[in-house]
Design a binder for these strands. Structure first.
Length: 589
RNA sequence: GUGCCCAUAGCUCAGUCGGAUAGAGCGACAGUCUCCGAAGCUGUAGGCCGGCGGUUCAAAUCCGCCUGGGCACACCA
């Protein structure tokens, strides 16, 4: 990366200056220096502000900048000093090397090794298998999968997991609800309680009707027997409950999984909460906390001393009816993750769960591990906007599921919009905009750049029509010729154009391509896939600008070869970046 | 009431460890297709970075207080 290269040059220049007595010894001064891209391109391609050194060097920033520059030997850039800034403008030769690098590394261009050896388990969505995924889940789904791609690209060893909350009361409610739907489908008198309080314990949405139909298709005889034996419709026997629970859970999970696959989200594992209970993991974990002296009894319940570890208060781990709380299973789950040998536990949680972070971290520490291994990304929620107004997800208005949304706006647009914003700002998802295939929709802007680059490459190899003579001309290039451009193209031809705009657009585009490496690195470090979206829009803009300033085809042959090399590089980076966020890179649109 | 997050152009948002004149997109206005895809490009207008203090050579950025919004404060999951 050029940024690193420049900082290295500065460091050796400083060393030289210190030896020459022009600058005093400065401890850890490197930390103060940052290589950045100037907002104003007139200053150059990169800049380093040396003002922070003024205090230690006891000199004015301009002087320091001048001393460093005088001691610098840097043939790859024009260097100049403005105030406390050292500005760098790279030579064309170095810019050529960027294009060469992309052509050589192809799919791997932009990847880095910063995450080497770190084993990460990334947990996200983790919905109850009690109904369809909603739009909020969609944000975690898109972000989580994009983050996984991104981290892998930075050489992290990423394992993606979905925690199924398939134990507890909600499942009983699901089973009861399915039973009512099954009876209804059999034509028997059955309905949810009319009382509003009581009906809260049922899933009254239509989606269980289909599940009931499927159940009857496969189990009609069994259902008849159940129906005969059932005395109280609202309180079926344990046998019926178990049957309904197992069936409903499996169906709901299957539906969720199918939808996620369609949404380009792939988990390495679906981890069942029930499994934790059934294998005694939860009890074992409670025992371990007890042995560590971190539990006590009060009011008939068992409490965990989470406040010993920074939580605002202690938490109940066993209710006075003897059953575990949700937290208990969660503690066991995270303990299990650690036992599986992961270095980092990254969770994506909705902001409404932020209160849980402290207690789960507390449990990790109480169980003798490092709480900093747990990294929770708290995501703000999604507001749906339609016709310029917020669609409340409440009971009265229509229920829009993730499936509905994807059907309405498509996978690409949904994913892009879900990832586009920083995770800690509330996302306004404007359905009308996301659906629109016009210039208001950023997804198409990025994809269009890819389609356009593809189109140029197609045209380069296609026979041409001579309108004046109504005859056919041969193509500019054979396919093989294009594939071997990195060997035959002389990239110096990028810079021969007397048109200043063409040259500066070329510079801008190449620098943007080079910037990709830095974006991947920073976005990985900050766990911020939204940066990829912003980058894509910037890269697309640079490409469109280049396209309008510099003709690629039907110019002098050597110029064509050089510019086609750049088009191929751009197309590659667009494709890689789109791939990381799970959005398709179309050849045509 | 307490804790977490947020407040930047008419709207939606960037601004990575404090640094040069605060940036995009949309919307508005004005240009631009006998030429590789006009889903594009070029230009103009638009800002007391919610308010007040503080730290600093330097604050949208850090600290304190205030205002306005979101979320959470269960022996629910």
């Amino acid at each position: 990366m050029f940024k690193d290269l420049i900082l290295n040059k500065i460091e050796s220049a400083v060393t030289k200056a210190v030896q020459a007595g022009q600058l005093p010894e400065m401890e850890d001064y490197q930390k103060l220096l940052r290589c950045e891209i100037p907002k104003n391109a007139e200053y150059g391609d990169f800049a380093v502000n040396v003002s922070p050194l003024a205090k230690f060097a006891r000199k004015a920033p301009v002087q320091i900048a001048q001393i460093i520059t005088d001691n610098m030997d840097f043939s790859d850039a024009d260097v100049n000093v403005v105030a406390g800034f050292i500005n760098f403008k790279l030579t064309n030769k170095v810019l050529n090397s960027v294009v060469e690098e992309v052509l050589m590394k192809k799919d791997m261009y932009g990847s880095n090794e910063s995450g080497k050896l770190q084993k990460i388990i990334l947990e996200y969505i983790s919905a109850n298998p009690t109904g369809p995924l909603h739009i909020g889940h969609g944000r975690w789904a898109a972000m989580g999968s994009a983050l996984a791609n991104l981290l892998k690209f930075s050489s992290y060893d990423v394992y993606q997991e979905f925690y199924i909350n398939d134990a507890g009361n909600q499942i009983n409610n699901l089973a009861k609800s399915l039973w009512i739907r099954v009876l209804q489908q059999m034509g028997k008198p059955a309905d949810f309680p009319a009382d509003e309080e009581l009906s809260k314990n049922y899933y009254t949405g239509d989606y269980l009707i289909e599940t009931a139909q499927n159940y009857l298709k496969e189990n009609s005889e069994k259902a008849e027997d159940f129906a005969k034996s059932c005395q109280d419709v609202l309180n079926p026997s344990d046998e019926i409950m178990k049957e309904m629970a197992v069936y409903a859970k499996a169906q709901m999970l299957k539906k969720q999984q199918d939808l996620l696959a369609n949404f380009r989200v792939h988990f390495d594992n679906y981890f069942s909460e029930l499994y934790l209970h059934q294998n005694g993991y939860v009890d074992a974990c409670v025992k371990k906390l007890e042995d560590a002296g971190k539990l006590y009894e009060k009011d008939g319940a068992v409490w965990f001393r989470s406040s010993d570890y920074g939580d605002t208060q202690d938490r109940v781990i066993k209710k006075n009816d003897g059953t575990n709380t949700y937290l208990t299973a969660d503690i066991a789950y995270h303990y299990d993750k650690l036992k599986r040998g992961f270095d980092k536990l990254i969770n994506i949680w909705g902001a409404d769960h932020h209160g849980y972070v402290a207690r789960v971290k507390a449990s990790i520490e109480a169980l003798g591990d490092d709480p900093d291994k747990l990294e929770v990304l708290l995501g703000q929620l999604v507001n749906l906007v339609e016709n310029g107004e917020q669609v409340r997800m409440g009971k009265r208005t229509r229920m829009l599921t993730l499936e509905d949304l994807i059907e309405e706006v498509g996978v690409d647009a949904t994913r892009f919009w879900m990832i586009m914003r920083n995770i800690d700002t509330t996302l306004d998802f404007d359905i009308d905009l996301a659906k629109s295939s016009n210039d208001e929709n950023p997804v198409y802007y990025a994809q269009y750049a890819h389609a356009r680059s593809s189109s140029i490459l197609r045209n380069a190899c296609a026979p041409r029509v001579d309108v004046e003579n109504n005859s056919t001309l041969s193509a500019f290039f054979e396919k093989e010729e294009l594939e071997n451009l990195e060997k035959t193209a002389d990239l110096n031809n990028l810079w021969n154009d007397s048109d200043k705009d063409a040259v500066s657009a070329t510079r801008e585009l190449i620098l943007k391509i080079e910037n990709f490496k830095d974006v991947v690195l920073v976005a990985s470090k900050l766990r911020a896939p939204y940066m990829l979206c912003r980058y894509l829009l910037e890269l697309a803009a640079s490409f469109h600008h280049f396209y309008n300033c510099a003709r690629v085809l039907n110019v002098e042959k050597e110029v064509m070869k050089a510019r086609l090399s750049l088009v191929i590089s751009t197309k590659q980076v667009l494709k890689t970046a789109l791939g990381l966020i799970g959005v398709s890179a179309p050849e045509t649109m």
